[in-house]
Amino acid sequence: MPISRRLSLIVLAAALAGCATTRAPLSTATVGAYRETIDLAGKLSVNYIKDGKQESLSGNFTWDQAPGRIDVSLASPLGQTIATIAVTPQGATLTQANRPPRTAADIDGLTQQTLGWTLPVSGLRDWLQGYALDAEGKRFAASPANNSVVTKDGWRLRFVSWQDETSAQPIPRRIDAERSAAGDIQDLAIRIVVNPAG
């Protein structure tokens, strides 16, 4: 895999992990359904325009979340581990094979250091569980009947499919996120597919 594409995947993994310390408080209406500890795996694909050129990439991820820490592992489509990222309130660390770890005070600093621009995906920690902050800063709980929202930071989210549509608060299976611009990236589109639980 070319280095620029590998770096883009790493930055995307860093962005995935970027919500460890930025999540807004939950409303009392959603506290019961929200889980502080989750272990997920899935696939992601990204399409965007940079310097006038259409780019795309894809990979697999694992997401291990506990109170105060998120660990993300990103692998190529063939299963080769590309990077691991750990995010805690004290900072963020990116580890790649045969390279010294990179650290920064926060995930935004780490993405800036890694690629030269910041890809903020604040909120993904909530998105993976079907929540978001809408354009007015109010807590949005997605459902099969109410599956799209524009977030406070400008993402257009659509919760496309669900693990179990009949549960009281279904867990997303596929999430599509789009944004017109993020730094020098244009027309950014991310598709996240979470593997079925169990």
Rank of each mutant, 00 (worst) to 15 (best):
G137Y: 06
A83E: 06
D187Y: 05
A15Y: 06
R5N: 14
A105K: 08
Q96V: 13
A24W: 07
V46G: 07
A20D: 12
L57P: 03
T166V: 03
I3H: 14
T166C: 06
I175M: 00
A104D: 05
V11A: 15
P144E: 05
E55I: 10
L133H: 01
A182M: 11
A41R: 15
G52M: 05
G42I: 14
I171E: 04
Q80H: 09
A142L: 06
V150K: 04
R69Q: 13
A15S: 15
A104T: 02
P67D: 11
D134E: 05
V87K: 00
A132H: 13
W63A: 02
L7H: 08
A177M: 00
Q113R: 09
T21A: 13
Y131G: 09
I175K: 00
I185N: 03
D184H: 06
V31N: 14
F140Y: 09
Q163V: 04
N60C: 11
A13T: 06
D108H: 01
A141P: 03
P144R: 01
F140E: 03
D126K: 02
S167R: 09
P77E: 05
L110W: 01
T151P: 01
I3A: 14
A14H: 03
S180P: 08
G91T: 04
L57Q: 02
M1R: 08
T95E: 04
R102M: 05
T151V: 02
I49P: 04
T103V: 11
Y48D: 00
A33Y: 09
A168R: 13
Y34G: 10
L157Y: 00
V31K: 15
L188C: 08
I70H: 02
N195T: 14
E36P: 11
P196Y: 07
A14N: 08
P25Y: 10
G91S: 08
S58W: 08
R173Y: 03
L26P: 00
I107A: 12
A135L: 03
T30L: 15
T21L: 11
T30K: 13
P89T: 12
A168Q: 12
L128A: 06
G137P: 06
S161M: 03
